[in-house]
Structures are given as C-alpha cells and as structure tokens.
C-alpha cells in the first residue's frame, strides 16, 4: 500500500498537456499555486481536509455530547433528533464520537507523518551527501528494513511495545520513514552535483551548511508530497491496527476503532455505526491523495516550464 503510493508517477499527463497554454509570468510560487488550483480534484480534496479539521476540532464546541461517562441504557439507538447519528453499543453519541475519534486519527496520522518524513529526510540527505561506503551502508539499512512488509513490522512492534497513542505514533513513524529516506537520497545525489552546491563548497562552506541550507531546502517539494501520502497511509494503518486489536485502548477512540466496532454489528443492521466512520476514513484518505498528486504535478510543471 504505502510503497506504491509514494512512487513518483510517470509525468505522462504533463507531456500530453505540454504546449497547451501560454506560459504565465509571475513568481514561481504563484505559478505552482495556479497549477494546483486549476486541478479541481485537488481543490475538492483540500476542501474535504479543511472540513474534516473543522468538524473534528471545532465540532465539539458547537455539538455538545457526553463522551466521558456512558449510559448503556441508551445503547444502539438509531439516529434521532436527540442523537443525530444515533448511539453506539456503549451509549455514546455517534456524531460526537466521530469528532473525538477523528481528532485522534488525524493527530496520530500527522505526528507519524512528521516523524517519518523528518527521519527520512535527515537519513537520506546525509547518505546522499556522504556518498561512498557510508551511503552504501546507510542505504543497505533502509533496504533491510524495507524487506519487512509494513503490517508484519507494525504487528511485531505492536507486540513489543504496549499500545498507547505516543507509542502508536512512534511505531508507525519507525515503519514509514524508509520510503522518504530513499526519495530524498536520490534527490540529494543529483543536488550535490549542482553548481550552487559546488560554489558553496569552493567558498569554504561546511558540509553542515550545505546539508541544512542548500540540500534539504531543495528537497522540500519531494518532502511535502511524500508527507501528504504519509498522512493518508497512516490513517489506514491506524484503522487496520485498531481492527486487529492493536489500536489505542478505550476510552480513547479513532475512526478505525469505531468502524471496527461497528462491523461487529454487521448483521444487526446498525448502519449508523459503520458508514459514518467508514466514509470519513475513505473521504479523508482520498482527499490527501488528491492533494498529494496535485502538488506533485504542480511541482513537475515548475520543473518543466522553467
């Protein structure tokens, strides 16, 4: 799942579109923004992400529900005016639970993506810049760890660490950093031969300066695109781990845990336990993928029309 989504797709669409429209003047960021906004799917995706963030983090301010103490006497009620999306088996309001679960799904996903990308960037840039034996050694470490399919790695790490939200974040980050490391190392190999990097070295700039001021800032496109896909993947990872019973323990919850719980009632017709969290996961993951694809296309356009 994760590996494939992060491969750079062939730029066929751009080749087809090439020469179609006139080159617009203005700053490069303006151009990137224009290309991004031209992509309707990406705008929709961005809208969905903003909506989900508002829903999860501002929603509870407007829609008050009791999410600490539960009342099992009102469990499994279908949607009504009192509980807009019904109640779950424990008597929690489903809509309120969705907001709470979404908060933790998104927080875990963003934090894990941050760890994965941060670790990957440093590892990849150092390996690419060092070259030679150090590079070979560092990349064999990445190859070795990539050999463990991600779900096997996650379950194994889940068996070693007890589950809590910070540990879940670290475990997902530790599994997910390998792909960005590879991507950034590949880009560093090309960046380090550029004239401006050579110039810094000639002027006596330290390796650290080359790394922090010149190489890493120039991989920012790759990093942002990859981080977007990482968030999407992490949301699915968390959901899958919750289904396998390795998610966060109650009373904490997340969309995946809610979906997995709802699916226990698959044959009882309690649709309001299944579709709201399921659709929230699919919408959010699709949205992040649309945005990631669009940023990648926009940055490729920058490279091609320069």
């Amino acid at each position: 799942m994760s590996l494939i989504s992060q491969l750079p797709a062939p730029g066929a669409e751009e080749l087809l579109a090439e020469g179609g429209e006139a080159y617009r003047s203005g700053s490069i960021w303006r151009m990137i923004l224009d290309v991004f906004l031209e992509n309707r799917l990406a705008t929709v995706g961005l809208g969905v992400i903003v909506f989900m963030l508002l829903f999860c983090f501002l929603g509870p301010v407007i829609y008050h529900t009791q999410q600490i103490y539960n009342n099992p006497n009102i469990g499994d009620e279908p949607p009504s005016l009192h509980h807009l999306l019904g109640t779950d088996p424990l008597g929690y309001d489903v809509l309120g639970r969705m907001m709470l679960g979404g908060q933790s799904s998104l927080e875990i996903a963003f934090a894990a993506a941050l760890i994965a990308v941060g670790l990957g960037v440093i590892w990849g840039a150092v390996a690419g810049l060092a070259g030679g034996v150090v590079d070979a050694l560092m990349m064999r470490v990445v190859d070795t760890l990539l050999a463990f399919p991600f779900l096997f790695a996650l379950i194994l790490l889940g068996a070693i660490f007890t589950t809590s939200i910070p540990e879940l974040i670290i475990v997902i980050g530790l599994v997910a950093w390998l792909v960005p490391a590879r991507l950034v190392r590949g880009e560093t190999l090309s960046l380090r031969t550029r004239e401006y990097v050579q110039a810094v070295k000639t002027m006596g700039g330290s390796t650290r300066r080359v790394l922090l001021r010149h190489v890493i800032p120039n991989t920012v496109g790759t990093i942002v695109v990859n981080a977007t896909f990482q968030v999407a993947d992490a949301i699915i990872f968390v959901a899958t781990l919750s289904y396998l019973g390795l998610g966060v323990p109650p009373p904490a919850t997340n969309w995946g845990g809610e979906l997995a719980q709802g699916l226990n009632y698959l044959f009882d017709g309690y649709w309001w336990l299944i579709y709201p969290p399921g659709i929230a996961i699919v919408l959010t993951v699709v949205a992040f993928n649309f945005v990631g694809d669009a940023i990648r296309d926009a940055l490729e356009v920058r490279l091609q029309r320069r």
């Binding site: 699915i236 997995a260 993928n289």
Partner: peptide
C-alpha cells in the same frame, strides 16, 4: 480505484 485504495481492507472484506 481511489475509493478501493482508500478503504481499509477489513471494511471491504466485511
């Protein structure tokens, strides 16, 4: 294909 990709496998199976 985007929807199937984004759907947790366990939900699809069930």
């Amino acid at each position: 294909s985007f929807v199937f990709y984004s759907m947790p496998t366990f939900w699809l199976g069930l």
